[in-house]
Design a protein around this nucleic acid. Structure first.
Length: 596
DNA sequence: GAGTTTGAAACT
DNA sequence: CAGTTTCAAACTC
């Protein structure tokens, strides 16, 4: 038995850490400093669960030799069964970062079901329970077992996935791992480190992770939850061996499925899915009595008509390309593209994010600028409050020097082609005496200021004066010494608070838009699909409503970012009345007023 | 709620 | 490794 690593997650066991050094001891703790049990062999690991998870299970004392701390009873916890790994570190998936790891289904079948069943409309719901009858919940058929947790309150028969049958369960774990050392590893590659490489947000909010093994769907078109990819809300990838796949970006069937209000139009959506699948099957001939259900049938379609039955997914664009020969409406969609109403055509559904026309790149830029300004203001405020006398003692010379230094730093940072590397280089280079000569900005501020493209930032800060003022406001007011960390914390708190306000407003806008869209879908049987195409707010009614957010100004006369801009402005206004009311705001003098 | 469909897992 | 069977969830009626 080799060592294995497990990282605690708020809800489920994250097997991605198996990629870490096998010898590395697990040192993770829960938010409540709950230790992670880390030994060889199958283990019982206490895991703090989110409120949606199951009630706490009893631990076998002998199985938690390192668990010396008493679990707080008020905390709902789940004991995740650590699976023995047999030297699988080499083939482990990318590592993840706890802070940015997205909600990830360890097993698409198991985890995504949990996710979707637990949280709906923001209301936590009880975790799905298995109904195993013949597997004793000791095979991967069992969601609980596959998820590495004990069955608890399930509807299973002859369940052995519990503490009482821990030996049997352990055997089953080992047997499973013997068959497939990666059995308990996440099937969805969702490494944050590689997030920018293999994951990205599509226009409709879909996360482009990859299923490690890929699905093998034949009949569902990968548009039903039978499909692990679909269930995990990811697109099929080149790893998939699915037939007649419609779960690729640009797929109008998929867009039709996702279009509209997910929660309130499931029947509609499913009907759309069925129509899409049925239509595709009919056109492809797959729906006709198949000679065999096996994949040999693929060969019948190869080159015969329209379908590449194997690799017909968006990433490869193979299927899209082939299918487009029969679907001219899609033929103009180049590569992995975001759906475009103009190219899809007036009679086709096209899904777009409800926020698609609310958020523009320049809005993000402006938001960053606003937050940077707030960061500077916060620093200034704190500096004034905490260290007024000290700052005066230090004199203006040093402050000026630091300001100019910081200005240069920021400019260098933001002029760099690779901001991330630049930051890293700066951080590493500041290990020595250099660090004492500079006044580093708050990490959050640095991230805000540097984690955006040069062009965006340059556009946000339209003049060198702005840049200088920003940088000086951001850091030059900071006192030296131990107050720095405290200041950073407060600085980041304020910035994050403002950012949260922005997101809340964005959510509100999206919800309103969503409500309008869904009512549109439900309210009429003859939905103008053209109106639904590309922009869910292209009907007169919704446009008018949307315009209400623009203070009555005709949307056609507005930049599309207007709503977001107003949102940011509202945040600024709010902040003026709250946390930063005491702060001398540069924009009051018109110097560093955010471009919002 | 029963029956069917589906595809992953398990098995041969 | 491919084909077949088993299994439980998803889905349909």
């Amino acid at each position: 038995m080799t060592d294995e690593n497990v990282r605690m997650d708020a809800c489920v066991l994250d097997f991605t850490v198996f990629s870490q050094s096998p010898a590395a001891a697990v040192t993770s703790v829960t938010e409540q400093n709950q230790p992670v049990v880390m030994t060889s062999g199958a283990q019982v690991v206490p895991v703090k669960l989110t409120p949606v998870t199951r009630p706490q299970l009893q631990l076998q004392p002998q199985q938690q030799p390192q668990q010396s701390q008493t679990q707080p009873q008020q905390q709902q916890q789940q004991h995740v069964l650590l699976m023995p790994m047999k030297g699988t570190a080499a083939a482990a998936p990318p590592t993840t970062h706890p802070s940015i790891r997205p909600p990830k289904p360890d097993s698409p079948r198991a985890r995504s079901r949990q996710t979707t069943s637990e949280v709906k409309d923001g209301t936590p719901k009880k975790q799905k329970q298995c109904n195993c009858k013949h597997s004793r919940c000791l095979k991967l058929y069992c969601e609980c077992f596959a998820s590495g947790i004990y069955c608890d309150g399930c509807n299973c028969n002859n369940c052995h996935n519990n503490v009482e049958n821990e030996p049997a369960r352990r055997e089953a774990v080992e047997a499973t791992l013997e068959r497939n050392p990666h059995a308990f590893r996440p099937k969805i590659a969702s490494s944050p480190h590689g997030a920018r490489d293999n994951k990205e947000e599509t226009g409709d909010g879909l996360v482009l992770a990859k299923h490690n093994k890929g699905c093998h769907c034949k009949k569902s078109g990968c548009l039903k939850k039978y499909c692990e990819c679909f269930q995990a809300n990811i697109l099929c990838s080149e790893n998939c061996k699915c037939m007649d796949c419609k779960n690729f970006e640009g797929s109008e069937e998929r867009q039709a499925l996702f279009h509209g209000d997910h929660a309130n139009n499931m029947a509609y959506l499913q009907q759309a899915a069925n129509a899409a699948i049925t239509g595709a099957i009919g056109s492809s001939g797959y729906g006709s009595p198949p000679v065999t259900k096996k994949r040999k049938a693929q060969e019948l379609f190869f080159g015969s008509t329209l379908k590449d039955p194997v690799h017909r997914h968006g990433q490869l664009q193979q299927g899209n390309h082939i299918k487009s020969s029969a679907l001219p409406s899609l033929s103009s969609i180049p590569g992995p593209c975001v759906s475009n109403a103009a190219t899809v055509g007036p009679s086709k559904f096209t899904y777009r994010s409800l926020l698609a026309d609310l958020i523009q790149p320049q809005d993000l830029k402006e938001l960053c600028s606003v937050l940077v300004v707030y960061s500077g203001e916060a620093a200034k405020m704190l500096a004034d409050e905490k260290d007024a006398s000290q700052k005066q003692a230090e004199g203006q010379t040093e402050a000026s020097l630091a300001s100019s230094t910081q200005e240069r730093d920021m400019h260098d940072c933001c002029s760099s082609g690779d901001q991330g590397e630049k930051i890293g280089m700066e951080e590493s280079s500041l290990d020595g005496a250099d660090v004492s000569k500079r006044r580093p900005m708050s990490p959050g501020t640095l991230a805000l200021m540097c984690d955006e493209s040069d062009a965006m930032f340059a556009a946000a800060v339209t003049s060198p004066n702005d840049l200088a003022t920003l940088s000086s406001n951001t850091s030059s007011q900071l006192p030296h010494g131990q107050g720095m960390t405290e200041t950073y914390g407060e600085q980041e708190r304020i910035v994050l608070t403002k950012f949260r306000d922005c997101l809340n407003r964005l959510i509100t806008l999206g919800e309103i838009k969503e409500t309008k869209c869904s009512s549109m879908v439900r309210g009429t049987d003859s939905v103008d699909q053209q109106g639904m195409t590309g922009n869910v707010f292209t009907t007169a009614e919704t446009r008018n409503q949307h315009d209400s957010f623009n203070n009555g100004v005709s949307r056609s006369s507005l930049p599309q970012s207007r709503t977001t801009t107003q949102m940011f402005s509202a945040v600024v206004t709010t902040a003026n009345n709250t946390a930063l009311s005491k702060v001398h705001r540069p924009d009051e003098n018109g110097d560093v007023k955010p471009k919002v």
